[in-house]
Design a protein around this nucleic acid. Structure first.
Lengths: 244, 244
DNA sequence: TGAATAGTGTCTTTCAGACAGTATTAG
DNA sequence: CTAATACTGTCTGAAAGACACTATTCA
C-alpha cells in the first residue's frame, strides 16, 4: 500500500553436488574440506556460486564437477535434486543453492589432478555419522541425494550409471546391494534383471575374468524407465517373529 | 587470473505454482491471465517474486497460493517440484523460479474472492493443447508437475490430497483414473486399496448417498509411503495383437 | 419391481522368493 | 580333483486381473 516503487530482492545463486559412487562395495560420496571461512575446516559438498549472470544452472553444475571434483560431466549421470534456500543458511547473505545428484562409475579411483586436491570419497555412513562436521545444510542435502538414488534404482536404469560401460550382472547386483543396503539372491536377481524390457542388453560375446566362471558382459539398454520396476525388499525394521 | 575482486552475480528469485485438482472427473490446473507486460494476456501459472530478502521460499509459495489462488495452504499438499532458471526465460532479467506442486481437494469450487479474480481451473489437456498460449516456460513446468503427480500416486498417499477429508473408495478411484487417464476395475481397486497398510482407515460407521447403495467413508491413513505400491497399468501404447 | 452403486468370492495367470542343480573357469 | 563364481530349472506362495455374484439403496 506504500507509494514507493517495490523492487524484488536479489539472491546469490549457488550449486552443490552430491556425487555418489561405489568403492569397496560401499556407497561413497565426494566431500571437500573447506579452505575459506564460512565453516572453514569443515567437510562440504563440492559446489560454488554461479560464475556470471549469463551462466546456465546445469552448466554451473558441470563446471563445478570439473573444477572441484576433476570429473568430466560427459557420460555421467547428472540430475537436479532440490533447492535449499532457507534464510540464514549461509552467513554471507541470502544464498539459494540448487543441489544436483551425480553418479560416477567406479573407474576413476583417484579424484586427484584437480584444483581442489583436498577432495575425498567418503562412505555415506561415515559422512552422515554424528561426529562428522558438515558445512551449511549439506547433511540434509546428502540425505536427500541418497534417498533419491535409492528411490530411482527401483523405477529407472540409474544403477547402470554406477557401472563401467560394460558390466556383469553381478556388478550390477552389487550396486543394488550397496545403495539399498540389502543382500539379494544372485539367481533371482539374474533372471529378474534380464526380464525387464530394455534395461540391459548383451555386449558382444565378450567375457571377463576374476576367479571363477567368466561372466557375460552387458551394456545399459535403451529404456531408462523400468517396466516392471525392480522391487526393494522390505527393510529389516521389525523382524519380530511370533513363535508358533 | 585477473587482479580484480570477483563477486558472484545475483538473480531474482520467483516461485510458480502448479495447482492441480479434480473437477468433472478431469485433472485441472489453475491458470491466471497475465495483466502486465512480459507475456501480457497470455496464460500463466500463479506465482511471483520473493517479497523481501528474508522471506523463506516455502513461505513465498504459501503466500502466492493465498494471494493469487485464494487458497489456504493449511491442509493442502505442497511440495517443491523443480527449479527453472535458463538465462533469457524472463526478459526482465535473470529470474530463477522455484516451482511448487500443490494438490487441492475438489471442494473449493469457486476460486474467487481473491486479488486475481482472473484465475480459472483449466483441464490439463486444454492447458497443454497446441493452441494455448502459455507464458515463459510454464508449459514445461505444468508437464513436470503432472508427471510428478502421476508418479507419486504409485508410491505415496498423494491421491488422498485430491479428496475431502472423508471420502469413499469410489472417489479415490476417480482420482487415480483421472490423473493416470486409465480405467480401473472397481472391485479389484476396492480390495487393493484396502490391502495397502495404512493407506486409508475407516471413518466412523458413517455413510453417504448418491443414487445407489451408500458407501463407507474413509480418511487418509497414517502412512504416506505405500507398501506395496499402487501399480499403474501399462499405457495403451502398442496394443498390437497378433492373431492366433 | 428395476436401476444403480457398493461390496464379496473365486478363478487364473503372473511374478517374487527359495533353493537344488549344472556349467565353466583357475589352481 | 576342489574351490569359486556363473548360470539354469523348478517349486511355492502371494499378489494382479478378470469377472460372476450378493447387498443395499432410490424411485
Amino acid at each position: 500500500m506504500g507509494a514507493d516503487i517495490w523492487t524484488p530482492p536479489t539472491v546469490l545463486l549457488a550449486v552443490d553436488l552430491v556425487i555418489l559412487t561405489l568403492r569397496d562395495s560401499r556407497l561413497q560420496v565426494l566431500l571437500v574440506e573447506r579452505g575459506i571461512d564460512p565453516h572453514r575446516g569443515a567437510l562440504a559438498l563440492p559446489g560454488g556460486f554461479l560464475s556470471d549472470v549469463t551462466e546456465d544452472i546445469p552448466s554451473a553444475a558441470e563446471r563445478e564437477l570439473a573444477e572441484e571434483a576433476g570429473l568430466d560431466a560427459a557420460g555421467l549421470h547428472l540430475e537436479q535434486l532440490s533447492v535449499y534456500g532457507t534464510p540464514g543458511r549461509d552467513p554471507r547473505g541470502r544464498v539459494v543453492s540448487v543441489a544436483y545428484l551425480a553418479i560416477a562409475p567406479r573407474l576413476p579411483e583417484p579424484v586427484a589432478g584437480t584444483d581442489a586436491a583436498n577432495a575425498w570419497w567418503t562412505p555415506t555412513d561415515v559422512a552422515l555419522a554424528d561426529h562428522t562436521r558438515l558445512a551449511f545444510d549439506h547433511r540434509q542435502i546428502i540425505v536427500d541425494g541418497i534417498e533419491r538414488a535409492r528411490s530411482k534404482l527401483e523405477s529407472s536404469a540409474l544403477a547402470t550409471a554406477f557401472c563401467s560401460p560394460e558390466f556383469t550382472i553381478t556388478e550390477l547386483q552389487q550396486v543394488y546391494e550397496a545403495v539399498w543396503d540389502v543382500t539379494l539372491d544372485p539367481r533371482n536377481f539374474y533372471r529378474k534383471v534380464q526380464s525387464v524390457d530394455g534395461f540391459i542388453v548383451p555386449a558382444g560375446p565378450t567375457r571377463k575374468t576374476e576367479n571363477g566362471r567368466p561372466a557375460r558382459l552387458f551394456r545399459a539398454g535403451p529404456h531408462t524407465v523400468l517396466h516392471p520396476p525392480m522391487t526393494r525388499p522390505p527393510r529389516p525394521a521389525d523382524m519380530a517373529r511370533t513363535p508358533a
